[in-house]
């Protein structure tokens, strides 16, 4: 009985040790990636009732959830998945180009061939 308990204890301790060791390794890896300035970025198109948008994850954490065309007036999604991907990739390119800001301007949208309407930049007076 005592022996079985002893084995169980040793096994448990080993599992704990590896869990702890893995956790430490993970922390050190994350730290080294940060120190190297490396970031992992993922962009994926999303479909909502507004049309197409995109999501960007940085280091596995959600950063941008863009359901509608950025910068313009109105809540209008991209017409196609490809348009959403194109603009999402422009945002990612800005991050990776050390500009650090994935902000999208009207000029970016025009450069990428996104169809805009006159009302997209309309200003309204009450």
């Amino acid at each position: 009985m005592h022996r079985r308990f002893l084995f169980l204890s040793i096994g448990f301790v080993l599992i704990i040790f590896y869990a702890f060791y893995f956790n430490q390794l993970k922390r050190e890896f994350n730290l080294s990636q940060k120190q190297k300035g490396l970031i992992f970025i993922k962009v994926k198109p999303i479909q909502t009732n507004l049309g197409w948008g995109y999501e960007i994850e940085v280091d596995g954490k959600p950063f941008i959830h863009q359901e509608f065309i950025p910068s313009i007036f109105g809540r209008r999604g991209f017409a196609t998945k490809e348009d959403a991907e194109l603009v999402g990739n422009r945002a990612v390119a800005k991050i990776t180009d050390s500009q650090m800001s994935p902000a999208i301007s009207i000029k970016d949208l025009e450069e990428l061939g996104i169809q805009l309407k006159p009302s997209d930049t309309l200003q309204i007076k009450k």
Binding site: P62, H65, Q66, P70, I72, I104, Q123
Partner: peptide, 23 residues
């Protein structure tokens, strides 16, 4: 003149989205 919205998610994070630029 750009504007962004922030919505909290999870225990300690936000997601951002770019909205219409300030009028």
């Amino acid at each position: 003149n750009d504007f962004y919205q922030a919505i909290p998610i999870g225990d300690s994070s936000l997601t951002w989205a770019q909205v219409a630029s300030f009028g």
